[in-house]
Design a binder for these strands. Structure first.
Length: 300
DNA sequence: TAAGATAAGAGGGACAT
DNA sequence: ATGTCAGTCTTATCTTA
């Protein structure tokens, strides 16, 4: 059994069977303590600082009454020192609009992360990317939701978490093309290169959703591996490929699943499955038993 | 009812102007 | 910068088994 903190999935290391898609990341030290020993034991105190909090959880302001920590009035020289510090402290708030931006973006992020089961590492990565984007002034004139959506998608791609543009766009309630535009902008401006999504990773996600057998899943993976070898996968939607491979695998294994069901789980249309299906069959020269019969079942 | 076929349209990359 | 082209995917509709 392996836990993948980057995708938030727990699966069998040998066969890839996904047990549950969402796990809590408990790998960090405990934050609460119930006894004195525990209290002394715990490795950190307070909330962890996070990139996904607008001020990274480190809000400190200099107060306005001129007293020290014990409540005594400050000396005159200290008073003037504090006054100067206070001035700079407030000047640092010229980043207020940026701060507002982060606040809105990260509340959006927080709202979405549960909906599409994002792990903490994806959330942190998203926040990091978003901060970079703001730094580079990429958010000016663009919607915050669009940019945060793009950052989420980017973080998913980077961590190999199989989420589609549509997954993200739907939850944020924004058009797919807007997210994709922002996404490409981020790629370009932040000088990032993204490896193509491995369709094989998509298979477990779809198969899990449709509750397909391990045999079908493994067969679909071998189909995709073959397809990769003869290079017919370039430029195709990885989800579509994965869906088609799964469908093909179902047919071969006499598993009755409709294209519709798989298409829905994969987030592609039936037509796409059919097209990929056709390509896979032709180029891999896969023979389909025309009618399921006992001979076929016996063979398997 | 599921699967296949076909056509129109959208969005984006490559390339030329 | 703008237009065109080939290729992909989606939506919609019709036919076939």
């Amino acid at each position: 059994m392996v836990t993948d903190n980057s995708t938030g999935e727990r699966f069998c290391a040998r066969c890839g069977f996904v047990i549950n898609e969402r796990i809590d990341d408990n790998s960090g030290p405990e934050r609460r303590a119930f006894s004195k020993e525990e209290h002394e034991d715990r490795a950190r105190t307070g909330l962890p600082s996070s990139l996904a909090v607008h001020d990274m959880g480190l809000a400190t302001m200099i107060g306005h009454d001129d007293r020290d920590s014990t409540g005594k009035p400050l000396s005159v020289s200290m008073k003037s020192t504090i006054k100067r510090l206070r001035k700079w402290d407030s000047r640092s708030q010229i980043h207020e609009s940026q701060d507002k931006n982060f606040r809105q973006a990260f509340s959006e992020l927080d709202r979405i992360k549960d909906k599409i089961a994002l792990s903490n590492s994806v959330v942190e990565k998203t926040a990091y990317i978003y901060r970079k984007a703001v730094e580079k002034n990429l958010t000016k004139g663009r919607s915050i939701s669009g940019m945060i959506a793009a950052a989420i998608y980017l973080a998913c791609r980077e961590t190999g978490t199989p989420r589609t543009l549509n997954d993200v766009a739907c939850q944020i309630n924004i058009k797919r093309k807007d997210v994709s535009r922002c996404y490409r902008l981020l790629l370009k401006e932040l000088d990032l290169t993204m490896p193509v999504v491995d369709p094989i990773r998509c298979i477990s996600r779809i198969a899990n959703q449709v509750k397909l057998s391990e045999k079908v899943k493994r067969h679909a993976i071998t189909i995709l591996e073959d397809a990769n070898k003869i290079e017919i996968t370039a430029g195709k939607d990885p989800m579509g490929l994965a869906a088609a491979a799964l469908y093909l695998s179902c047919v071969i294994n006499n598993d009755v699943v409709t294209q519709k069901v798989i298409a829905k789980a994969a987030g592609v249309t039936e037509v796409t499955i059919r097209n990929r299906n056709k390509g896979l069959r032709e180029l891999l020269d896969i023979k389909i038993p025309s009618k399921p019969n006992m001979a076929n079942i016996a063979q398997i």
